[in-house]
């Protein structure tokens, strides 16, 4: 087997350890993510999905266990820029045009102007924002802004894309269209994706595997395989397998919510 892109071993995260407001956000997380996978993290609010993503990105450091990205420590992977990150909001810089926003990570890497401009333009083409290079973020719709954020995350051609509820703020119609586009981009770039979401249809449509988590402490309750073929499209949402996976995830989520109120059985 090839080397996993992300390995989480006995990972744990406790906030305010030892204090009265101590919170165990994550506990005993074991997971290996293979190259090219699309992993969705789903679970009740407060189950530590975003925390898990931030641990992988080395934006916070774990209190137990370890994270390996491309066989390196998470910190080294961040310094080497092995991953791109997309947040819930686009976080575009309002003083930069769309093109300049996408070029930002390349600029920080010291890439030459003409080269980074070429790369950024290609990425804007990929996310179908050609023609909007010189617009400013506020002139674009929410969906378009989020697409620009995806282009920016892909600019450094990362092996790994971390997405924290990127379409959470979008309406249902836009969201479905963005799902299709993300699926296409994933297929085209062959990037490994970790995707945090609240939406079951979104998770099923996009993922190769869905990680269902329980809350407080956040644990992996179940990893559900998604046996749907690629490329997926409108027809996918009508397949029997799609409904089966959706039902399975929903059942596990119901259990996760039960545990959230009554505690996880030992």
């Amino acid at each position: 087997m090839t080397q996993p892109v992300v390995t989480l071993s006995n990972l744990g995260m406790t906030f305010n350890a030892g204090k009265h407001n101590q919170t165990i956000a994550l506990e005993a997380i074991d997971l290996a993510i293979q190259p090219g996978e699309f992993i969705s993290l789903i679970g009740p609010s407060g189950c530590g999905k975003s925390t898990l993503l931030r641990l992988v990105g080395d934006l916070i450091q774990p209190t137990a266990g370890g994270v390996q990205v491309n066989g390196k420590s998470a910190q080294q992977a961040r310094i080497d820029q092995d991953y791109g990150m997309v947040f819930q909001t686009p976080v575009l810089f309002e003083w930069r045009s769309i093109l300049n926003n996408v070029m930002l990570p390349l600029e920080l890497r010291g890439m030459g102007r003409s080269e980074r401009q070429k790369r950024a333009q290609a990425l804007l083409h990929l996310v179908e924002l050609s023609g909007f290079e010189h617009h400013y973020p506020w002139q674009l719709s929410g969906g378009m802004q989020q697409r620009a954020a995806i282009a920016r995350a892909l600019a450094i051609q990362p092996k790994l894309l971390l997405m924290d509820e990127p379409f959470g703020a979008l309406d249902e119609m836009t969201r479905e269209r963005m799902n299709m586009e993300l699926h296409r981009i994933w297929l085209e770039t062959k990037t490994t994706v970790i995707f945090v979401t609240h939406s079951i249809p979104e998770a099923v449509f996009l993922s190769t595997r869905i990680v269902v988590m329980s809350a407080r402490p956040g644990r992996i309750l179940r990893v559900v395989d998604v046996p749907l073929t690629v490329p997926r499209g409108e027809h996918t949402r009508e397949e029997t397998a799609y409904f089966q996976v959706e039902t399975e995830v929903r059942e596990w989520l119901r259990k996760a919510k039960g545990y959230a109120t009554h505690g996880l059985p030992e």
Binding site: R54, L59, I79, L108
Partner: peptide, 18 residues
């Protein structure tokens, strides 16, 4: 700046000057 923007810069391993 939005704390997420600061996190974004951190994810790029940007220096304090940057």
């Amino acid at each position: 700046p939005d704390p997420l923007a600061v996190e974004l810069m951190r994810s790029y391993a940007a220096s304090a000057w940057a």
